[in-house]
Each structure stands twice: as structure tokens, then as C-alpha cells.
Amino acid sequence: MMKTAVEFDKKNLLASGHRACGGCAQALACRMVLDAAGKNTIACVATGCLEVFSGPYPDPSWRIPFLHSLFENSAAVAAGVEVAYRALKKAPVNVLAMGGDGSTADIGFQCISGMFERGHNVLYVCYDNEAYMNTGVQRSSFTPFGAKTTTTPAGNRFHKKDLPQLAVVHGVPYVATATVDDYHDLQRKVKTALSIHGPKYLHVYAPCPLGWGHAGDMSIAISRLAKETCLFPVYEIKDGKLVSVVKIPVKKPVEEYLKVQGRFRHLFKKGVPTTEVELIQEIANQNIERFNL
């Protein structure tokens, strides 16, 4: 009856007791990622919501080794862990680097680029909530066009950075995007990634109730809407070749996605969409064409 089978990984390696807001998709995504990766995993986490809500002394929520250093260096730290394991000839371990969109696309991009280029056996997971949420919703280079943040009060004028593509051109053997609503897909991609030697990049879409202006219980629904409106294409690239795309048989207009979020409310004047909405629809259309959604 269910669209999805009932196989899943649930080990609660990101345990209860974290301080994420109610309905936080990043907390959810992180748990799904860790549970799929399993216990033989070390996570190197960038400063950000995830680290702050999951890593306070004396009761962090991690149940796997967790290493936090700075905002912008999780990829380099993970590279260090990976080489140390190699140097010490310890039993192989999954090394994950994690960060939000700011630490991934903006301040930490150099370290990620270096990690990719040197070919470390590290899976970098970016939890994309499309702004600097931890510090109060400032624009990042993953903030989508039109979105209101505290540093773009009139709506963001720039387009979202295509980091998965940047990873591909780095020659990263496995690049994938995923959403929290489809945990089978997400967890499968984590496992696929970890089965491949070398750098991997997983981009997880993680709605933020606080920053996006939606009720906590809408996180899953909005994540799904992003997919269904084709604003967030879900795909997998192996060795530079697009190997899978989550097809959207019934494509919804972007309004359905925009209207349920406070950060896009200014794009509707008395419920009537402004020209920006057309531009956002155009982004979706480009995605449809590009990925044959």
C-alpha cells in the first residue's frame, strides 16, 4: 500500500536530546545519514546549527565519534582524520565531513575543494537550509533567488550556487542530492557513497521552520514540494555521468512551494504572484530541462 518499502536504518546515532528547533529537518537528515553510515563512522562537523544543537557539553547527541573544530574547516579536519587512520594503519572507518550551506558553499569551500582535489576518502554531507540559520537567517550563496533573509530584506537577488556541479567538475566520483522526505533514497545514497573510495559529495535539502517561516510539522511536506516543483532536483552523478534522477511525473507550479513559506511571502501581493515568481518558475523549468525531470 505504501509507496515506499519499510526497509530503513534506525540506530539513533544522533540521539534524542539535541536542541534543534521542533521540526528541524537538519536534525532529521543528520540522523538518517549517520544511521545509514553506521557505527564505524567518524563525523567531522562544521560550526553551525547542527554542531550547536547536537554538541553542547556535557550532553551531546552524538553516539559516534564526533569532531568539531571550526566553521570553515570540516573538510580539512576530515582529511586529517582520514590520513591519520591511513598513517596509523587502523581498521578502515567511514569519515564524514558535515556542514551547513554556509560553511559548505561560502566560507568552507576552499577546504572542500582541497579535500576533493586531493582525493580523500571522505563523504562530505551538506545540509542545505539555504541561509545562515544558526546566526539568525543571513543570506548564503545557497539562498535561492527571491528569498527573504535578514541580510536580503527585499529578497535575494542572486541565484543559488550549484555546488554539486562544482563537485562534479572537481572529478568527485560520486555526487548526489537528496531530500529528507525520501529517507530510503537518502540512506541508499549514503551507503552508495560510502562504498566508493575517494571523495564524495552529498547535498541534502533540509527545510528550516524558523528560517523559512513555516510550521515545524511542514518540514517533510515542504521538502517534498521542493522536489515536486522541480526547484530541487534529486539526482546522482557517478564518475561525471548522471546515473539517476528522481522523476517528477506531476510537476507542481512553484507557487505551491513558495506560498507555504514566510520567506517568499513578499513575492505575492494580496495573493497575486509578482514577476519574481515567474523567474523562479523559470529556474524550475531549467531544472526540468537539464535533468529531464
Binding site: 567518524i42 573544530s69 574547516n73 582529511a79 586529517g80 582524520v81 591519520a84 587502523k90 576552499q110
Partner: peptide, 21 residues
Amino acid sequence: LNVESEFAAASVVLGASAAGA
């Protein structure tokens, strides 16, 4: 490991040291 900046170099040794190296 020849990395892309001193910042990364320090970060790498941080990670490696935390891993016991």
C-alpha cells in the same frame, strides 16, 4: 599532505592529531 593553504594544513593536523596521529 600538501594542502591548499596554511589554514587547511593546520586543520588537517588538527584532525589527524584528534585521530591519534
